[in-house]
């Protein structure tokens, strides 16, 4: 079998497609990661404090998301919801929503585990000092939970990044779709998918490095140890 990588890298159109696809994948993953983390914080709080009704709803939501395939969620968000509710977004919008919902369920379980690591005595001490519940959460519980769970959140984030290739199915021009486009034109499947592999590995390592920097920035004391 001969490998002809030059059919990809000698063609400026294909290189531009791969670059745009990689940018789209990275942008959607980062945006969905941040929004998912925000939503996860709400979900984890509702469950951890057993907020009436909301806590159960959050639990049901997390179980639903974690027990259905991403592709099913994606099709539901992209083709089902718009029909039910009568709206239409660009496809990257559907993908962003589906990824945010998906990420939030996984992140919320990690955060909830983080909340349990904060010793009960700290709550009691804070309440005895008359600190308001929101401030206890914001200044005492959340920072410790995020700090302890940062490695888990990071690896979950990178794992979820690698699942985003599936959004190509609904027509989003991400990295996987760029690969499929080039493959269907040139029929150089092995070269195309080896190239995609290399780009995904490089991007995962870049995310890992960036998250390590964020970790050091947010928690200098822990990172220095």
């Amino acid at each position: 079998m001969e490998l002809r990588f030059f059919e990809i890298y000698r063609n400026p159109d294909y290189l531009a497609l791969l670059a745009e696809g990689a940018a789209m994948s990275a942008a959607l993953t980062v945006a969905a990661g941040l929004m998912g983390l925000a939503l996860a914080t709400l979900l984890a709080t509702a469950r951890f404090h057993a907020v009436p009704v909301l806590g159960h709803l959050a639990a049901a939501y997390v179980e639903f998301i974690r027990n259905t395939p991403l592709i099913v969620q994606l099709f539901f968000v992209a083709f089902g919801l718009p029909q039910l509710l009568g709206y239409s977004w660009p496809f990257w919008g559907h993908a962003l929503l589906a990824l945010t919902l998906n990420f939030s369920a996984y992140f919320s379980e990690i955060l909830r585990a983080g909340f349990t690591t904060v010793a009960q005595g700290q709550y009691e001490a804070a309440r005895a000092l008359g600190i308001r519940p929101f401030v206890i959460f914001r200044k005492i519980v959340l920072p410790q939970a995020v700090q302890r769970m940062f490695p888990s959140l990071s690896s979950q984030f990178i794992f979820l990044f690698l699942t985003t290739g599936i959004i190509a199915e609904i027509g989003v021009r991400d990295l996987t779709q760029a690969g499929m486009f080039i493959d269907s034109r040139t029929f150089r499947s092995f070269e195309v998918f080896l190239t995609l592999t290399a780009i995904y590995v490089a991007m995962s390592l870049a995310f890992k490095t960036a998250l390590a920097l964020v970790h050091r920035r947010l928690f200098p004391a822990v990172a220095a140890r």
Partner: peptide, 18 residues
């Protein structure tokens, strides 16, 4: 041009007005 992964997704997209 929106390129879907397979025939079924393409038809779903059309049927749902996307």
């Amino acid at each position: 041009i929106i390129r879907f992964g397979d025939n079924a997704a393409t038809l779903s997209a059309y049927l749902s007005g996307q």
